[in-house]
Amino acid sequence: MIDGFRIPLGDWAKAFIGWVTDTLGLFFDVIATIFTGFYDGVAWVLTTPPFWVIILVIVALSFWAKGWKLALGAAIGLVVIVGVDQWEKAMQTLALTLVAAFIAILIAIPVGIWASRSARVSAVVRPVLDFLQTMPAFVYLIPAIFLFSVGVVPGIVATILFAVAPGVRLTELGIRGVDAEVVEAGHAFGATPGRILRQIQLPLAMPSIMAGVNQVIMLSLSMVVIASMVGAPGLGKDIIQALSRIDIGLGFEAGLSVVIIAMILDRVTGGFGRARKRPARPAAQAPAPKAAPAEASAPVPA
């Protein structure tokens, strides 16, 4: 290090956050109100009915997505969560995950589509995604606290920033991977770019897009546990409490509940994203050509 020389990046970042807070305070208050209302509504839906009602709904979704094996596993896992008395906190974690993942997907898919249709946008978006994916998870909590104080909102904002990148990347990758000849055929038949996007590119890119959705949900679930450090509700509070008290039992119960929710979400979204291919019809076999009759050999002269 050169004596007397230091780049004050930290001071600049602090000044920038202070300027943003003073200038756009009303805007962030509106965002906080919307996110809080959104979370409260989803949490109310998941925590107000009896636990067996929510279990039946999740089991039905699991059966629809991937059959009876996943439905049975989901039922057993959710009963275990009830048995260790973590149901309410698990539903709070699930609500926070669903809200953050839904908002992240609303951002990721349009941005991915835009990047796939413009090389300039892709060139701008790519380093931003690199920055978001390489930044340590705990760092996202710092500006979120400055902008939204403590509570559920900074947890949602940090989770969105942490989870949005795979959705953008896989959406762009899926659309760019569509066969160019198919797109050219659409242009040849006079289809507009919007119609080509809706009826050709998005359906063909859907497996990649759904893989991005799955990754967004998984990253959201991993981040909402960390977000409990800034006041977000759910299982993360018990995990942090278990770490501070070295409570192995509480940590195991809360951690197992997180694993069960993660497995259910992963299998259900993977089931819905699976490409359902119809079995190809066997080609009609053409009747084998009859063998031509052998020509009678001419008699050999004596």
Rank of each mutant, 00 (worst) to 15 (best):
I103D: 09
T134E: 02
F131D: 01
I76L: 12
A115P: 14
R117Y: 14
W68K: 12
R126W: 00
F102V: 08
L98I: 15
P50K: 11
V99D: 12
A104N: 11
Q133E: 12
V84C: 01
F51H: 13
V128L: 15
S122F: 07
V80W: 15
P110G: 04
A75P: 04
L94N: 05
V124M: 14
P110Q: 05
M91G: 03
I55A: 08
W114R: 15
G67D: 08
V57R: 04
R126Y: 01
Q86N: 02
A95W: 03
V53D: 02
T134N: 14
A119Y: 02
L132V: 06
G67N: 05
P136Y: 00
P50R: 10
Q133I: 00
V79C: 03
V99Q: 03
A104I: 00
V128R: 00
T93L: 08
P49G: 14
A101Q: 07
E88S: 12
V99M: 01
T134L: 02
L70T: 13
W44Y: 15
T97F: 00
L94K: 07
K89Y: 09
P110W: 01
I76Q: 01
A108C: 09
W52E: 12
T93N: 01
A100I: 02
P136S: 07
V42D: 09
L132K: 04
A108T: 12
D85Q: 02
L129Q: 04
E88Q: 08
G77L: 03
F51S: 13
V121Y: 09
A119S: 10
A101F: 03
D130V: 09
G77V: 02
A90P: 03
V53Q: 07
I105D: 06
D130F: 02
G67C: 10
A60F: 15
F131L: 15
S62N: 10
P110M: 11
A95K: 06
W64F: 12
K89N: 11
R126A: 14
A43V: 14
L94P: 08
L61N: 10
A119D: 09
A60G: 11
V42N: 08
G73S: 08
P136A: 05
P49C: 13
A60Q: 11
K66A: 15
V45E: 02
A65W: 04
L56C: 11
D130G: 13
E88V: 13
A43K: 11
G83R: 06
V42E: 08
I107N: 10
G67F: 10
M91Y: 07
V82F: 04
S62T: 11
V80H: 07
I54N: 07
P136K: 06
I113C: 05
W52G: 00
K89P: 00
V124I: 15
G83S: 04
I76S: 04
V59H: 08
